[in-house]
Structure formats: C-alpha cells, structure tokens
C-alpha cells in the first residue's frame, strides 16, 4: 500500500518535471518542425540563472519568500533572451532545411552554449537549496516528501492549462494552430509566420529554462546537467506524438509512472524503461499516441 502510494507520487512528481521540459520541445517542433537539441542548454541556462539569483538573494538577506518570484522570473527571462538570440542569430538563416539538418544545427548550438555557460559560470557547482526546504515536508505514514516536489505537480498542471488555454481559447493560439496544421496555407491566408516562429521559439525556450529554474533548488548546478535531459525529453515527445502538447503530458505520465514502478519493484530495469516504453508505443502506434493526421501526397 505504502509502495503503491510511493509509486503514484514519485511517478507524478517525475512526470511533472518531464512535462515542463517536454512541453517547450513539442511546441517548438509542432510549429517549426525543429527538434531542438539546444533545449538542454536552455534548461541549463535556466538552472544557472536561478541558482546565481538565489545565491545573490539569500546572500544579501532579503525576505526568503521573495526568492521564488525572483528565480522563476529570472530563469524565464534568461530563457527568453537566449531563445531570441538563437532564433534570430542562427535558426532564421536555416529555415527550409531538412528536419535532420535542423537537429544538427541545434546540436551545434548546444555545443556552443555548453561552452558559453562554462565561460559565464565556470565549472564549479552552484547551489540554490534555500527555496527547496521552505515549503516544508509532507508525511504519508512512513514516507516523507518534500513540499517543493509536490508543488511542482501543481506548477506542471498550471503550465499545461496555460498552454491549452493559450492554444485553444486565444486568437494568437488559433493562429499558431493554423501554422502547426499547414504552414503554407497559413502563409497564404496572411498569417505572419515569421512572427509566429519567433514567438513560439521564445515561449519554447522560456519553458525549457523554467524547467531548469524550477529544478535548480534540488540540484548541484554544474556543467553537463542539460545533456541528460535532452534524450529524456525527446523520448517523451515521441511517445506522445510530436507536436502535441496533450501528448507530451500523457507521454510524461506514462514514463513517470513506469519509471517509478520499475524503481520500486525491479530497480535493475530503470535504465531501459524509457526506451522500452518508447519502443513499445511506437511498435503499436508508429507515430506516437497523439498524431496530427496528414494526407498521403502523391
């Protein structure tokens, strides 16, 4: 019973984190058809910005609760700025290339950003643990969870809802969905696709950085933290169906719960679980769980 509860909560916490990372990735793919490897760097930049801000904030003795607004806001802004630079500086010049080439382009950006973060922040770890302890602990019989982790579930829900609302209930969102559906027709209908691209990439980047910023308090923020995330997020996005935000949520839940199940029952399978789930899902649904229908073009 206790194990079951642990699996459920651990799975949910992990899934929330995965979802925030994957949401930006899938949104960017949906609109721009770019599988953005530099998303990992944006995650790292978000984490670094948050960690330095928290360090500075507590170092200068301000009221502790204000740190939340500061580090979350700081991470998001850092992500937006970096996103803007990447889109205007690099991606803009590469539009129209093959999808695989675009992956390689973002890989190049990832390599550069890895060293840029190293030059800016050095190789020594940064810590931002103060906010992590502030929400306290929650006890379920013998299990203790950090309040911060549980809050993350709510934050993920909020991010998901905000995305859903923006995409389905606002004019901008509808324009965005039109571009997701058919870029050429949208262009012909007078939608400013360039602007949509910029906005999408900035939102996607901000989400990646937000994920990094939110995780920073539980981590030692050091070089390389963004690399592991990429493949994980890719898997989630592919499982859910590329470009589908709802799919990313389901994919994250599936991976999160399966992983928690493995850790609590057969820990030796933990390493395979993500690829196992991905292979299984693709074997049944070759294009992921939620896929946008496409006509066969002859």
């Amino acid at each position: 019973m206790e194990t079951l509860l642990a699996i459920l909560i651990d799975g949910l916490v992990y899934a929330s984190w995965l979802f925030i990372v994957a949401a930006g990735l899938t949104l960017v793919y949906g609109v721009m058809k770019i599988l953005n490897m530099a998303h990992g760097s944006l995650y790292a930049i978000g984490a670094y910005s948050a960690a330095s801000l928290v360090g500075w904030y507590f170092g200068s003795g301000h009221p502790p609760w204000g740190s939340f607004a500061l580090f979350i806001g700081g991470a998001v802004i850092a992500g937006m700025v970096t996103g803007l630079i990447i889109e205007r500086g690099v991606l803009r010049r590469m539009y129209g290339r093959d999808e695989v080439v675009m992956i390689l382009v973002t890989y190049g950006v990832l390599l550069i950003l890895e060293d840029v973060t190293k030059l800016l922040w050095g190789v020594d770890a940064y810590f931002a643990y103060q906010p992590y302890g502030m929400i306290g602990r929650v006890r379920f019989s013998d299990l203790t969870f950090a309040g911060y982790d549980l809050t993350l579930i709510a934050v993920a829900g909020l991010v998901g809802f905000a995305l859903w609302y923006a995409l389905n209930r606002t004019r901008q969102g509808k324009l965005l969905r039109a571009v997701i559906h058919d870029r050429e027709i949208s262009l012909a209908m007078g939608i400013n696709v360039t602007r949509i691209f910029i906005v999408t990439f900035i939102i996607g980047s901000a989400l990646g950085a937000l994920a990094g910023g939110l995780t920073a308090p539980a981590l030692s923020v050091a070089p390389g933290i963004g690399i592991e995330i990429i493949i994980l997020a890719f898997a989630v996005v592919v499982i859910g169906g590329l470009g589908s935000v709802g799919g990313a949520a389901i994919g994250a839940l599936l991976v999160g719960i399966c992983r928690a199940l493995a850790v609590h029952t057969y820990p030796q399978f933990e390493l395979f679980i993500i690829y196992g789930v991905m292979a299984a899902v693709l074997a049944v649904r070759p294009q992921g769980l939620f896929v946008i229908a496409r006509a066969r073009k002859i």
Partner: peptide
C-alpha cells in the same frame, strides 16, 4: 582545451550554412 566544444559547434554551423 577549455572551449573545444564551441569550435566544434561553430564549424558545424558554418558547414551547414555555407555547404548545404
């Protein structure tokens, strides 16, 4: 030795850009 990834990434971008 400290920034080789940047050089590698930069040359990758240049190649893709100039030699499609």
């Amino acid at each position: 030795p400290y920034t080789w990834q940047m050089i590698l990434g930069g040359s990758l971008l240049l190649i893709i850009f100039f030699l499609p």
